[in-house]
Design a protein around this nucleic acid. Sequence first.
DNA 1: GCATATAACACTGTATACAATTTACACGGC
DNA 2: GCCGTGTAAATTGTATACAGTGTTATATGC
Lengths: 226, 226
Amino acid sequence: MRQASVQSVSNVDRIYQAVKEMAIGFRFKPGERLNEVELSKRLGASRTPLREALNRLGAEGFITFEGGKGFFCREFGPREIYELYQLRSVLEEAAVRLVCELASDAELDELDRFLVETGPDDGGRSNEALVALDEHFHETLMDLTRNAEMRRILRNVNARIKFFRWIDMERRRGETQDEHRMILAALRERNADLCAERMRRHIERRLDQITGAIKEGYSRIYLSGR
Amino acid sequence: MRQASVQSVSNVDRIYQAVKEMAIGFRFKPGERLNEVELSKRLGASRTPLREALNRLGAEGFITFEGGKGFFCREFGPREIYELYQLRSVLEEAAVRLVCELASDAELDELDRFLVETGPDDGGRSNEALVALDEHFHETLMDLTRNAEMRRILRNVNARIKFFRWIDMERRRGETQDEHRMILAALRERNADLCAERMRRHIERRLDQITGAIKEGYSRIYLSGR
DNA sequence: GCATATAACACTGTATACAATTTACACGGC
DNA sequence: GCCGTGTAAATTGTATACAGTGTTATATGC
């Protein structure tokens, strides 16, 4: 074996993370077959652990699998994006209603602190950083539901739409955080209907912007190097 | 290789299905480690395809995985059941609202036909059959949302709670179908709020019954043989 | 008798070899 | 020129071997 186990970060996990990030960032072209030999060489491992990672990623929807053919980069059209955003909306609207009832004032304080510390945007942040902050807000909110399953699904969905969030963030840097503050304000009022409405609109607006962005700039996505 | 490919049903798929059904039916004891050598022998394959199947099942939440230790039967307490039912409730409540808007009259007719043909219960059906009908109703409803992601998640959740549905069905054979009919009636009225309310109560009642059943009969689950 | 160290065992993690299948390509017929 | 066919190369699917790690049983000292 290559190296002494560096505790808790197994080889498959490393490969899994690496390929996951490639899939998230669309370093593979949609529909492209993933060559196992080449990939495993590039990642410094044999095909066995690579295939285990690919099987996990397939089960999680990051890549697809066809028996006898192998693994492929997922195809992504407006339909798939819409479905994932709809799922997000359903989950987060329900989450915010639950959090309205469940969260302690202290937990909301902490969320508030996060928004204050990380905003408003002074223009000095990278898109990656802004996307990470956006994800962090939504995932922290979901954590407050205390429902591990819902958390797991939201994280999965967020990873799969990350690229499109990134595209969106390039154009609308400011709005996101304002809307987050409005959602928190509704949470403070413990007004479930208002929370849900604001969350729904928040996600809906993002989707509208992204479908727009996709239409005009889809080609840019797959340029060389990225 | 063992046999000529019988078209589209690969070996890993077969193993995957077999182990999945074992996990669903709790043929493994919670927390038990799955011995790969023994399992692979029992399924007539080597460890390689078995491990691929196990990785998929782990990613889907049917079993757990611990680096360096292997795969284990999931542990299941009231908390996990509650979370899965809450997730179900969130998904299906949203689904029924969507279906209220999206479904054609013809599609609702078909759902109606299904309910008429398969009910009311004459007492001659097995629990397995009743659970299958129950699942079928809910999954067909979810199909009408035309959202493949939400469909996928509901099917996953249903598989994971199947055993508890089965326990519940043993006691309350009749109510389920009545409630299904009431939900369909609300769909026909295109009354989204009423649909959502009935669906929410429907799932909530099931959860109440199951937590009750669990308390009094948990031990019976792990008796020999089944 | 109990705790601890240690050695034997069992099991997982990974590389590799080979079989089976798919894919690419060249050739020949139409 | 285009389509079908056959052959070769590439690629996936699986078995197996072995290394490394975790687990358990045994023996030893207190």
